[in-house]
């Protein structure tokens, strides 16, 4: 497993779908993983990253409130697999010293992770087979590129491989 950060949330211009960009936390040449997500989950992640507090608790706030109320603790989340273009994730929940892995969509896992301030992991195989090497992308324009440029290199063929 490798630890990643949420680099940013954006809209994929090709599919007009929200997209979350995860970037490897450590290493010289960091890998980037793109995951297409739903609008409300994108909003839930973005809202928290920008520390905006909506007037009423949104669904992922409620998830966290329920966990906190019953003395549960989210330890981490992990993007575990991709099958038929669908990403799978798990939320590791701890209660009374026991841990439980809850099946989840990556978008929900990420929205929960940013609220609980816990690490986000990706299985090595997932990032190996589906990640972009940041350095690779940088080759064409070595000086000005950042992760955002990855998105500009996306074409429909690549986009087809990623849906959540």
């Amino acid at each position: 497993m490798v630890e990643v950060n949420i680099e940013f949330v954006t809209i994929d211009r090709n599919s007009r779908t929200p997209l979350v960009v995860l970037k490897e936390k450590k290493g010289d040449s960091k890998r980037i993983l793109l995951i297409w997500i739903g609008e409300s989950e994108a909003w839930a992640i973005e809202n928290q990253l920008k520390k905006l507090s909506p007037p009423r608790p949104i669904t992922h706030d409620l998830l966290k409130n329920v966990i906190d109320t019953f003395s549960g603790k989210v330890n981490s989340v992990c993007i575990t697999a991709i099958e038929d273009s669908t990403f799978y994730a798990e939320v590791t929940l701890e209660l009374n010293g026991k841990t439980y892995e809850l099946d989840s969509r990556p978008s929900d896992a990420l929205a929960l992770a940013v609220r609980c301030e816990v690490p986000i992991y990706v299985e090595e195989k997932v990032i190996e087979e589906n990640g972009f090497l940041e350095a690779e992308v940088k080759k064409e324009k070595p000086t000005k590129r950042d992760a955002k440029d990855v998105l500009e290199n996306l074409d429909d063929d690549i986009a087809k491989h990623y849906t959540v």
Binding site: S40, L63, V66, T86, L93, L95, S104, R105, D108
Partner: peptide
């Protein structure tokens, strides 16, 4: 095909033995 957010919430509620 995948659990929706409220399905996850139900799973959390069940896991918390509530």
């Amino acid at each position: 095909p995948r659990p929706m957010t409220h399905d996850l919430l139900k799973n959390i509620v069940d896991t918390l033995s509530t």
